[in-house]
Design a protein around this nucleic acid. Sequence first.
DNA 1: AAAATGACTATTTTTGTTTTTTGGTCATTT
DNA 2: AAATGACCAAAAAACAAAAATAGTCATTTT
Lengths: 188, 188
Amino acid sequence: MGIDRRKLIVEAAEKSFSLFGYKATTMDQVAKLASVGKGTIYTFFKNKEELFAEIASTLVHEMKAEAEAVIQPGLPFTENVHRALFRMLEFRSEHLLMIKLIQEEKEMGTLAVTEMLQHIENEIIAYIKHKLEGVNHTILQTDLEITSFLLFKLYIALVSDWEKNHEALSSEKIAEIMKVFLLKRLSD
Amino acid sequence: MGIDRRKLIVEAAEKSFSLFGYKATTMDQVAKLASVGKGTIYTFFKNKEELFAEIASTLVHEMKAEAEAVIQPGLPFTENVHRALFRMLEFRSEHLLMIKLIQEEKEMGTLAVTEMLQHIENEIIAYIKHKLEGVNHTILQTDLEITSFLLFKLYIALVSDWEKNHEALSSEKIAEIMKVFLLKRLSD
DNA sequence: AAAATGACTATTTTTGTTTTTTGGTCATTT
DNA sequence: AAATGACCAAAAAACAAAAATAGTCATTTT
């Protein structure tokens, strides 16, 4: 078999989105970077947005994998929840594409980017919910949804928002705060 | 004594900022609305931003007054914290000026508005902190800061953010969630 | 004399127009 | 059958001209 053009395209796009953002990435550029004719891109993806969707989907998978990798069966449940969440937010602030997208959303408000970030957020919350599901059967479905949502918001607040006006909190401190919150939420 | 021109100006500005936002309010317009020469405005306020600051300051005072008004000495502490916070966020979503500023910040990203909203947020957090201070002496200063900050973020998440994708939560539900959080934070 | 004013100005913002860029197509080539 | 890049309509950027605006200050009013 010849070269995997689809893969070349996805890799080129990932690189370009990470480096220049969504708006500033042109299809011509992706084609050139992938050493592929522009038309070829459209044999694999309906349009720019679908190409973007594919890459974001990979990103979410990676993020979940990172979270899973950090969970250790021996540790207490709340500790694992913290480790997974913290790892995901770490990932969020390390991953070049994530950084670029968050910046583009803030500075230019590109619609496709806003929607994508919202989608990623929903995916993360759904993942948290899924993880919590198996553990405590007495909790109501609504409460599970709220709890997942709040956990995420709590973490964003502690990891990202707090930094804007204060010195960053240590992972341990965050774990401590979150343990109190989570324990109480899941045990009544 | 003659007419209080300063008051006329402040009232006109408040009305115009509420109706059209910061950017779209012109000094000529404020002067006309206040039936005052434009130069007169500058005898009371250094520039447009200071006029804005005065009005925002009044807003914060009103907001605190609303919070105070809803606190009842007989009720349990956590109940009062909830009532005060909930009232402030209600105020936030009822008060015309607040609504307009939040909208302007989102849609146009006017710098002066962003800064002002940040300032208001800080004031609210400081107020919460002040209220918590008297109650529990064993709590650390840092934790007090974090707790106030989190309380605010928690409320914004429950009252504003949640609504974007779900049906709004009742005041009672929010009170319940928050009680768990607050009780635990303040009692160890 | 003190307070108030609005014509004036330098700067910013908006508007209208032209040029360039870009996403997507499709007839041709590999 | 798969890949391509010249091509096109539509969007965005660049530019210029016109309009609007924050702030000043010489003149007028009290």
